[in-house]
Write a protein that binds this DNA or RNA. Structure first.
Length: 421
RNA sequence: GCCCCGGUAGUGUAGCCUGGUACAACACGCGGGCCUGUGGAGCCCGUAACCCGGGUUCAAAUCCCGGCCGGGGCCCCA
């Protein structure tokens, strides 16, 4: 076999136990937080009908879909997020009482060029909160995301929130006809390219220079959510929206997460389907966002035909792991390693192993290492805590020799203690 | 779509700039021995590699070209 074939496909990872346990422990903590908010787990097929995926994806995302034709000629694609499959499921399960609270820890696939923190196959933890249009829903979802990341001790977590409606209102007020998406796209570059360059790009999109400068200034807004109201008033945002942000801020304060949240009007989040509140999750450990989300009240219509309000987020678990460094959990140790000296003692070994397993211990039974020495060495390497020797001498006295691999001490333990029910 | 870097035993590295001193070194791993029921340490022995194809040269892991593969940056995103 060629060497390159032995590596996983580009952009994908082999989750060997040494790494997989940190991933699972993070996933478990996330799930625990989601369930504490009353969210239920959902999973769907990795493959979807290509048309279902295309219906939501923008032009750029379509190019990132892994697709294939099955033996019956069906065109299928691997899901690139969980929002689409969940929307599809909800479109035929109208019986779920609303609002529907779902969470997932699932693999998704995107045919991107791999880079730091960017993979072709990766895990997302996320929630979909479907059926409620209220500010309370937005706050709940944002708070859940923050609590989840706090539960894995992600350092220096900050949330940047914005709202599609703010820019929409401003654009309308200024009478700017240029394509909204194009303008948002330019403003999204703020911080990466100089402001003067942004102005120039906006002018190129057909925006007058004065208005362009105002827009760039606007995108520069970055204040703690608690102090954002005055800022929004100054910008001439409608009372309705200001009230929204006031309640959002207040509710986040009650959740005790407001101090992590900033209003940052340069946050745009893609081009596709967000209709209101949007947010991105950052840590100072890595440059990339570890997650993001927002409200998409019109997305469900694609599948169900009716507008259903919805809000959600997704967190990239590998990115969280990168940000945490080596802090994750490792493979758990083995509690007992049982070594019968010979075939005559193997039966007793099985019975002891089964009894200890029944008590909840992790037990490895030797399957025929050549010598006691090498079995001991092996047990030490797999981080076994105790090593049980059963040989002729022990059997004659109805005991087993129990060696503590951590303290290097040894004692005889009566067999009936190891075999008691 | 554009740009940069890299590819040496199973793994991680050294050597490459300044071609020959190297049947390529070190660590971990793996196999065995010292050691016949136990210090899992230590020592010894063994195992196993220069991505592929051309070129330059008396001589290439080392320089040049192409390919394949990988990593990272821009863009975009989790």
């Amino acid at each position: 076999m060629e060497d390159w074939m032995l590596q996983p496909p580009r952009g994908m990872n082999d989750w060997t136990p040494d790494k997989y346990y940190s991933l699972m422990s993070i996933a478990r903590r996330f799930s625990t937080v989601a369930e504490s908010f009353g969210y239920s787990a959902i999973e769907t097929p990795a493959l979807e009908h290509l048309e279902v995926l295309k219906a939501k994806a923008g032009e750029e995302v379509i190019n990132e879909i892994y697709y294939l034709r099955d033996k019956a000629g069906r065109e299928l694609g691997l899901r690139f997020d969980m929002t689409v499959p969940v929307a599809r499921v909800l479109s035929y399960r109208r019986d779920f009482p609303r609002p529907i609270r779902l969470y997932y820890v699932s693999k998704v696939w995107r045919y991107d060029e791999p880079q730091f923190g960017r993979f072709r196959e990766f895990y997302q933890f996320g929630v979909e909160h479907v059926g409620s249009p209220t500010v309370q829903s937005d706050a709940e979802v944002l708070a859940l995301a923050v609590k989840a990341l706090e539960a894995v001790n992600l350092p220096q977590l900050t949330v940047r929130v914005s709202d599609r409606r703010i820019m929409d209102q401003v654009l309308e007020k200024l009478g700017i006809n240029a394509a909204r998406d194009a303008v948002l796209r330019v403003l999204d570059k703020r911080g990466k390219v100089p402001d003067e360059e942004l102005v120039r790009l906006l002018v190129k999109e057909g925006v007058e220079e004065g208005k362009a400068k105002y827009l760039v200034d606007l995108a520069g807004v970055n204040t703690p959510i608690g102090e954002s109201i005055d800022e929004l008033r100054r910008l001439g945002i409608s009372d309705q929206l200001i009230n929204y942000f006031e309640s959002l801020s207040k509710t986040l304060t009650h959740y005790n997460v407001a101090d992590r949240v900033r209003l940052d009007l340069s946050i745009v989040r893609g081009l596709d389907y967000y209709t209101g509140f949007v947010f991105e999750l950052y840590t100072d450990r890595i440059k990339l966002a570890v997650g993001g989300g927002g409200r998409y009240d019109e997305l469900l219509r694609i599948y169900s035909g009716e507008d259903v309000p919805a809000v959600g987020f997704a967190i990239g678990i590998e990115r969280v792991m990168l940000a945490l460094g080596e802090l994750g959990d490792s493979q758990p140790p083995v509690d007992f390693y049982i070594y019968p000296m010979g075939p005559e003692q193997y039966g007793v070994g099985v019975r002891i192993a089964e009894n200890l397993r029944g008590m909840g211990f992790r037990v490895v039974l030797d399957v025929g290492k050549p010598s006691l020495r090498s079995a001991l060495e092996y047990a030490s390497k797999i981080r076994a805590r105790k090593f049980i020797i059963i040989g002729r001498r022990e059997m004659e006295n109805n005991v087993a020799r129990v060696r503590d691999l951590e303290t290097w001490s040894e004692e005889d333990v009566p067999l009936n203690r190891l075999l008691k029910q």
